[in-house]
Design a binder for these strands. Structure first.
Lengths: 245, 245
DNA sequence: CAGTGGTCTAGACCACAGG
DNA sequence: CTGTGGTCTAGACCACTGA
């Protein structure tokens, strides 16, 4: 297991973070115009290209709006809105954006054989061992999101019973598989709460729920983990921004 | 009403399109390595920065995967997947990605007064006139998506009865309002098919449906149009890619 | 008109993967 | 080691906005 080294953060990312914080802290108030790009160049002592990539990220996330010939403005409308697809799997973030505090409870961590469908999705053989994590995300101590994750056992560095189910999936992959996620596919749908899910989420059966199925892939385009999640969208709102391109 | 002028398309965008087409046409087959950035520089006679911005767009859309020290590879897994949030409002595109042919039928185009909620969202006064468009998207001649859009009448350049309800919302805004969309907010949820919606979509009542609420804003951060859409996600799959950042 | 963001170039150095 | 992509610079010209 390789030891994570801290290398200097890229300049463009540092600038991005600083500007984000200034917006968050109302140093650049909602609706106001940011300093010009050339000004920011001098302030940070970097080239304009660097400033621009940072600003571009902010614009894609909808945090700022750029107007040619006029300036860059803080968007006042994006409070509590997911600024990317993250809301589809970073459930902790989703819950926080909705104004709740988050906690995760691990319901079960066990090993079993993969079904045909599961094996196909995870690019393993049917019957191969997988670790099944059933977890429950709480929003202010109310059960909010039910998630079932599957990880091929062969990807694990550690024993199954050593897994801490209270971590985010990204942390789990980093700690126990030493894998980084390159990209994810997800599928959003609606379903009715079955009696099992309804009981876990403390809801009446037959209530409509949002169902999100997803699969993460590493840089070599191999599946690492799949997941199936259910939640009541009347409690948690899945809001997304998309800037035009 | 200004006359649209065709200016030369930005170089980076042309490169983007060419590479996209080459991937689509299997000139760069799935899983294969693309020519190196420096090679593409020479081939197109542009700087490396230009090539890189084009490739970055492809990578964000999940179309290619880049590996430092190795190369850029075509992702073979993104067939039929929305490469951005577009699927949340470009319903035509969504239907096509699911392998159907698209047609739009306008159910009604009428003017009425905005409710309190609607007025608030569209930043107009309660009771102000709005144009309500009810439309139905067909997938292979089966009714698939039901959409209700609201546009403040004051934004229209033309008379209400001149509106062609069979166009995409982007076209409608361009033709009748001369507005461009800067960004959009959307909210994804689940609901049960009411009897009205069920009849329109030719489904049994009480079936779970995906509900997508959205609002478009222009460059000045003013709301232009809101929308509410319903569809059966067992027929149309809303699949999304997200490359890590 | 001056100042803003939009596009593009040429070149540099670094980190990383593979042989 | 070579060649790949990752980061960054300095400078140029253009398009657009508002005064």
């Amino acid at each position: 297991m390789s030891i994570p080294i801290s290398r200097p953060e890229p300049v463009t990312q540092q600038v991005n973070t600083i500007l984000r914080n200034r917006i968050r802290d109302n140093i650049y108030p909602p609706g106001s115009r940011l300093p010009s790009e050339s000004y920011l160049c001098e302030e940070f002592g970097v080239s304009r290209a660097t400033i621009r990539t940072a600003l571009t990220h902010l614009a894609v996330d909808g945090l700022v709006i750029r107007k040619q010939g006029n300036g860059t403005f803080v968007n006042q409308r994006i409070n509590g809105v997911q600024t990317n697809f993250g809301g589809l799997w970073e459930f902790g973030e989703l819950i926080e954006k909705n104004g709740f505090s988050v906690s995760i409870r691990s319901l079960s961590v066990l090993q079993r054989s993969a079904t045909v469908m599961e094996a196909k999705e995870l690019a393993i053989h049917s019957g191969d061992p997988v670790v099944e994590l059933k977890r429950l995300f709480y929003a202010d101590d109310f059960p909010a999101i039910y998630v079932v994750n599957l990880i091929p056992t062969m990807l694990l560095d550690t024993a199954v019973d050593q897994i801490n189910g209270n971590l985010s999936i990204r942390e789990i992959l980093r700690l126990y598989c030493n894998k980084k996620i390159a990209y994810a596919l997800s599928e959003v749908g609606a379903c009715l709460a079955g009696s099992g899910v309804a009981e876990i989420l403390n809801l009446k059966p037959q209530i409509p729920l949002l169902k999100i199925h997803l699969c993460f892939y590493d840089i070599n385009n191999h599946p690492i983990v799949s997941g199936e999640s259910y939640y009541d969208d009347t409690i948690l709102k899945l809001r997304l921004v998309q800037a035009w391109h």
